[in-house]
Amino acid sequence: MDDPIFTYALRIGDDALVLGQRVSEWCGTAPTLEVDLSLANVALDLIGQATLFLGLAGEIEGAGRDADRLAFFRDVDAFQNALMVEQPNGDFARTIARQFLFSTYQEGFYGALSHSAEPRLAAIAAKAVKEVRYHAALAGDWIVRLGDGTDESRQRMIEALDWHWRFVDELFAMDAGERALLEKSIAVDRAALRPAFDAAVGAILAAGDLPAPRYPQRPVMGGRRGHHSEHLGHLLATLQHIPRSYPDARW
């Protein structure tokens, strides 16, 4: 039976790792040089956070797995990231919608985690919250700009937000393991973060004159149990190919 703090750190690290890998796909192909730089920097922050959380998970596990080992040598069903972060980038609007929703969630989550009774989780979160605050502001600016832009940009932004909305509830769901950690003041009470998230999202949508997202279907969950969309396997193939093909290679 895994240590519940190992699982918790792994989840948080997997969210950052998978989104960092996704966002880095824009590197070299973004609409403008400035956007390219922005997204590359966001990805870099996320990969850095993943390194710290996965490193901590490995330390807690005590089985000799470091951050690289956990990132490169686990199969798809061992990943516990939320489903939103593994979704394909789509067009620029869809990438920005995901970044805005996830960074806004992450800002609240890391903020609360920085008060965790587990000091190593709290230290990483206190550092990371400053970074994601900037990501949320960047993505929020683009939500407003595209929402309040041309008919085309506005329509794409509305579709992008609708498309991602089915993955939002999973970010605020907790299983028995997390609830047990919450009782020890180690885990974050995710449900308690929802009102502030809804308010922050609502304020930016209002500024961009965008309607509230509609549910095209019921919420989709399962990432925390290792039940992923087909997209994650393809992402991991790219991410893990070199270390799997050449184990322990150095450069």
Partner: peptide, 8 residues
């Protein structure tokens, strides 16, 4: 102490 989490 590092500046940014991911600073190379």
């Amino acid at each position: 102490t590092p500046t940014y989490s991911g600073c190379p």
